[in-house]
Design a protein around this nucleic acid. Structure first.
Length: 559
RNA sequence: UGGGGUGUCGCCAAGUUGGUAAGGCACAAGGUUUUGAUCCUUGCAUCCGCAGGUUCGAGUCCUGCCACCCCAGCCA
């Protein structure tokens, strides 16, 4: 059903792939890969890459491999691999093969030997600082290392001994012999192996030399028969190197690297370094904090996989810098939940409403639809009682005509219930209203009163039949739309009000909610149970996103 | 100042071999509505970074500018 809907609108990468397929390139096959480094959690920027790589393969009947790019044992952990798999599966994608770059360590080593033998790689014994000096600058060419012309025999011997662990970290490095005067800095004899006496989460202590990205990635792609290797623009200047390596070793598959621009989203940060810092400095409640742009955070917040996929389709794929508004993300989840989330009632800022002429112990069961349009979502039972909670924002002692809620002396309908008239308020010692007393019209259940119009409908929860619930409201994590663009440290730009915890009440049917359920609290927004904080008997709801609120705009203009 | 990229409505983004500017989000105005939600209708770039040129005709071709982004890890 969704196959047609989930197709990407035209974009330059799809155009390229389409032409390749039509031309019969790669026998018409499309094989992609998603190659995360397991050094953090996946975020919505990765989501764009995942949807694209898996999506392109899907559209053209191909397949996608998941490959952990684990060439840096110092930064990677298996914990991250697990979370990444969970997130990708949750997003709805299935990889064909699960691989690790470390699976290819032996082959990578043999290719390096090949390169040395053909005089295209050499062991350099310059220090890291010296290598940097020799590299030159953006505008001045580099100089050849004094070790550049070692014989193949000597290089082979040194490289073997590097592998054998005879040298300390940093003593030597294996470099490609390309061109120290290249205007592209990446081509100035890039290092492809470094010595790291470190335990690797996959290979243990089998290796003490580890290949670098530029060397590893293209060969891994080739070994897996990848046809289109999609990555972000940051690797554009590395493409000549990607191609150089594959052109200079003996492989028969040369994938095409195509770069697209990364996603920039307003009011958040996207670099793994910063997200990690937020977690480690306890500035947020873990990688899956509902305010985080991580896939796990968005999931916990209540975003659905379908909405995220839709989002990635709507933002498009180009090479231009982009700054996507939060409004688009919000609109996409509202649109998804509009047709799928059952309606319920929850009061966030409770104010007690007493219906003086309603029988004290009476409980009236009202069978009501779960959705105003979709009968398929079924019905549920509400309990109407003498005392209910309404939201403080839905009552005013006095108000002008534009205010369509409960006003002293005026009428309003309690959603699915009766029409009530507010008669008086009760205050506490500080003057705050604690109760509103009213009377109801028994003739108004399921029908409008005669001779007068009731303009408003408000939601409510029985004080005796409803359940207390903690309700968590979220605002953006940052106060500025582009924290990365600021001169200030992004941590100083964090929004102190990004999380507000309220103590409200929800209707009884919510007692059995699970974190996988999405609800619309009528007139409030979309909510889901928090997977971390909710416990049996202790309901905690996250507000995924509020409903579109045109009244808020009107009310604001009044002030 | 070297190299690589990008510039189409507030944001994202389509624009086939040049033929006379899609769509989404946002916004605005109406209508429906027991959610000020949803839904429906309507409006929203004489203009495609700028300046020239080629052409009957250019966002699409040519020339020259301008702006912004990325690259100097033994990170990915």
């Amino acid at each position: 059903m969704s196959e047609e809907i989930e197709k990407y609108p035209p974009n330059f990468i799809r155009n390229i792939i389409e032409k390749d397929v039509q031309a019969g390139k790669n026998s018409g096959q499309v094989i992609t890969r998603f190659p995360p480094e397991p050094n953090g959690y996946l975020h919505i920027g990765h989501c764009k890459a995942i949807c694209l790589s898996f999506g392109m393969a899907q559209e053209f009947g191909g397949s996608t491999n998941l490959r952990f790019d684990d060439t840096n044992p110092l930064k990677e952990k298996t914990e991250y691999m697990e979370s990444m798999k969970t997130d990708i599966e949750w997003l709805g994608f299935k990889w064909k093969e699960e691989r690790n770059a470390s699976d290819y360590f032996e082959q990578l080593y043999q290719f390096a030997v090949q390169l040395i033998e053909s005089g295209k790689a050499y062991v350099d014994s310059l220090s890291a600082d010296e290598i940097r000096e020799y590299r030159g600058t953006l505008t001045t060419p580099g100089r050849n290392s004094p070790y550049r012309d070692r014989s193949a025999e000597e290089n082979l011997d040194l490289f073997r001994r590097m592998r054998a662990g005879e040298f300390a970290d940093g003593e030597h490095v294996l470099r490609l012999k390309i061109d120290m005067a290249s205007p592209n800095i990446n081509m100035r004899d890039p290092a492809i192996y470094r010595i790291r006496h470190a335990e690797h989460h996959q290979t243990g202590d089998a290796w003490c030399i580890y290949p670098l990205y530029d060397y590893t990635h293209c060969i891994s792609d080739s070994l897996e028969g990848i046809t289109h290797s999609l990555c972000d623009l940051g690797f554009e200047a590395h493409r000549p190197l990607y191609d150089w390596v594959l052109d200079n070793i003996n492989v028969n598959c040369h994938p095409q690297q195509i770069e697209f621009s990364r996603l920039n989203l307003q009011y958040t940060v996207m670099s793994k370094r910063k997200l990690k810092q937020l977690v480690e400095e306890n500035l947020v409640d873990g990688w899956d904090d509902p305010r985080m742009p991580t896939i796990s955070g968005l999931r916990r917040r209540g975003y659905t996989a379908a909405a995220l996929r839709d989002f990635c389709r709507r933002i498009g794929v180009t090479k231009s810098d982009n700054n996507v508004e939060l409004a688009l993300l919000e609109s996409v989840i509202r649109e998804d939940l509009e047709d799928t989330a059952p309606r319920v009632m929850g009061v966030i800022n409770p104010l007690r409403l007493v219906i003086d002429n309603y029988p004290v112990d009476q409980v009236e069961n009202l069978t009501v639809p779960n959705h105003p349009k979709l009968e398929s979502l079924g019905e549920r039972t509400l309990q109407f009682t003498r005392e209910v909670y309404i939201d403080r924002d839905d009552f005013r002692e006095e108000a002008n005509r534009k205010y369509k809620r409960l006003v002293l002396g005026g009428e309003v309908r309690l959603r699915y219930g009766y029409v009530v008239r507010a008669n008086e308020v009760v205050r506490d010692a500080s003057g705050e209203i604690t109760e509103v007393h009213c009377t109801y019209d028994p003739e108004t259940l399921g029908r409008n009163p005669e001779g007068r119009k009731v303009r408003g409908v408000i939601h409510w929860v029985s004080t005796t039949e409803g359940c207390p619930a903690e309700i968590r409201l979220y605002e953006p994590l940052f106060t500025v739309d582009y924290p990365d663009a600021s001169d200030q440290d992004y941590r100083d730009l964090m929004n102190p009000d990004s999380l507000t915890i309220k103590h409200g009440f929800v209707e009884k049917s919510l007692a059995e909610a699970t974190p996988d359920d999405h609800y619309q609290f009528e007139r409030e927004g979309y909510f889901c149970l928090d997977s971390r904080h909710a416990r049996p008997g202790h309901l905690v709801f996250n507000r995924t996103v509020g409903l579109r609120d045109t009244w808020a705009k009107i009310a604001q203009q009044e002030d």
